[in-house]
Design a protein around this nucleic acid. Structure first.
Lengths: 110, 110
DNA sequence: GTCATTTATTCCTTGACGGGAATATAACTG
DNA sequence: CAGTTATATTCCCGTCAAGGAATAAATGAC
């Protein structure tokens, strides 16, 4: 049960957006600034939080700093989730899926 | 309802502790208070946050209110996690190949 | 009805977090 | 060296969340 830093890092929607961006490919800060519509300092601060949570790594390329996802903490999340996944598998089973309360699946994030 | 409420609810360690308690079994507020070492009002407020995030349900039993986990939001988390899980599976795979360095070619691809 | 029990809510204070502007640092260019 | 680009850091401020104390509300017992 190491870090609450992981959870609090992902609690912010902007940071989740950054993480989603980095899922596609590694990006320099400038790209992230542009994509998120945040100011550069704000973006740098969010990146610092993500860095300290271990969620991203930085590679230096001349003046640019290219950020990339580090998969390990996500695995930690997955491990945390495991017991609960059992639970909802069980209850889905119990429901017998006769109740379709939310059929449409929307992957929209924030 | 891709709500940030889910994330911010789970960002708090006390609330994660409550969720973990409810994973074992449904419990009335008093038990949660005792187990978490929080004050009763504070506990009630955390429960309210969890309720509004959809993470718990309440059943009334005389004066007691028995809280239980609702598995659905956890499934939402799991869905969010899915693309990242692919990523770390891939990198574990890449690591495995690196350790198993028998191939003469460079197998690195996308 | 009054009283006890259990839980929720309100008020208040404090501390942490996010955003913007300005500034600092680092790396490349000429 | 000075100048430019790219990123990080600092300072200040507004907002929001968390905790404690006191109180309210709901339920049950008498």
């Amino acid at each position: 049960m190491s870090d609450g830093a992981l959870w609090s890092a992902l609690a912010d929607p902007h940071r989740r957006a950054i993480v989603a961006l980095l899922l596609e490919r590694p990006r320099p800060v400038g790209e992230i600034v542009e994509a998120c519509g945040l100011s550069q300092p704000s973006t740098s601060k969010h990146l610092k939080v993500l860095r300290e949570a271990g969620l991203v790594r930085v590679r230096q390329d001349a003046q640019r700093r290219v950020y990339a996802l580090d998969p390990a903490p996500i695995a930690e999340l997955d491990a945390w989730l495991a017991p609960y996944r059992k639970l909802w598998n069980r209850s889905l089973d119990a429901l017998g899926r006769r109740l379709d309360e939310t059929a449409p699946d929307d992957p929209e994030e924030d």
